[in-house]
Design a protein around this nucleic acid. Sequence first.
DNA 1: TACGCTAATGCAACATTGTTGCAAAATATT
DNA 2: AATATTTTGCAACAATGTTGCATTAGCGTA
Lengths: 138, 138
Amino acid sequence: MMYSIIETLKKNQLSITDSRKKILELFVRAKGALAHADIENQSGTEFDRVTIYRTLQTFVEKGIIHTIPTADNSVRYALCKDACSEGHHHDNHVHFMCDDCGTTYCLDNITIPNVSLPSGFLATQTDVVVSGKCGKCN
Amino acid sequence: MMYSIIETLKKNQLSITDSRKKILELFVRAKGALAHADIENQSGTEFDRVTIYRTLQTFVEKGIIHTIPTADNSVRYALCKDACSEGHHHDNHVHFMCDDCGTTYCLDNITIPNVSLPSGFLATQTDVVVSGKCGKCN
DNA sequence: TACGCTAATGCAACATTGTTGCAAAATATT
DNA sequence: AATATTTTGCAACAATGTTGCATTAGCGTA
């Protein structure tokens, strides 16, 4: 399956800039999720810290990437599947964080089990974060 | 059911200090989870910021409170049930965060459903965070 | 292709959050 | 009550995130 960076940006009515191209490319290449710091390191001094913040924010708003709640409360981002559209994320998959190598995976094939809530409670979003050892480290 | 603050501290071999008593009391009284900022506000200028950080850290280590991973990646803490012992938390319950009032609940009665992982993956901890509207706001 | 308009970037300054070392104070031990 | 041990508060620092504004780059149009 192909992922066209330019196409993705155009589809979301974003102007094609160096930083957006480069940062989106990092996500396409990365197997796991990226933290802000990862991006800052991998892009060198090419972009300002502020630009990275704003780019990530824009991508999240447009549904290009989504944030991942982690057990250690660090912020991480990962590419959304095509099904995600602006303002409406469909990332109902399980996230896995390896205690050893720190890699965060989106387990796209594993859907979130249904959680029955007390009466009166209404769920709009369910996040499941599993931590442990991944395939490589086990 | 009674919760003795002094007893809890003694049981965990912690010396009884003003800050520990006061902060633990906040947790006992609070129905939901507390963020660092909540504690800082509710305790006024009584304690130093650093003391609060260190106290929370100590409580987590001793298994008196546990952290809650939230969808917005803010750090929150809540009291552990008696079953929690030092270094080993048994907080395998679902956490619920209300989008309206912001209250975070520990749904102690709802256990975490089993998640089947890809082969090679080994889970040590599973966190489930549901967000939506709670009983009061619905 | 050049022009002007709009949007994005970089910079500076600032706010918030969290960490560390060390002297002073409070707690525990005898 | 005296001493040993812990905990606290302060100061300084590091990391993370935000905002305003001038400059620059991308885009549509002629």
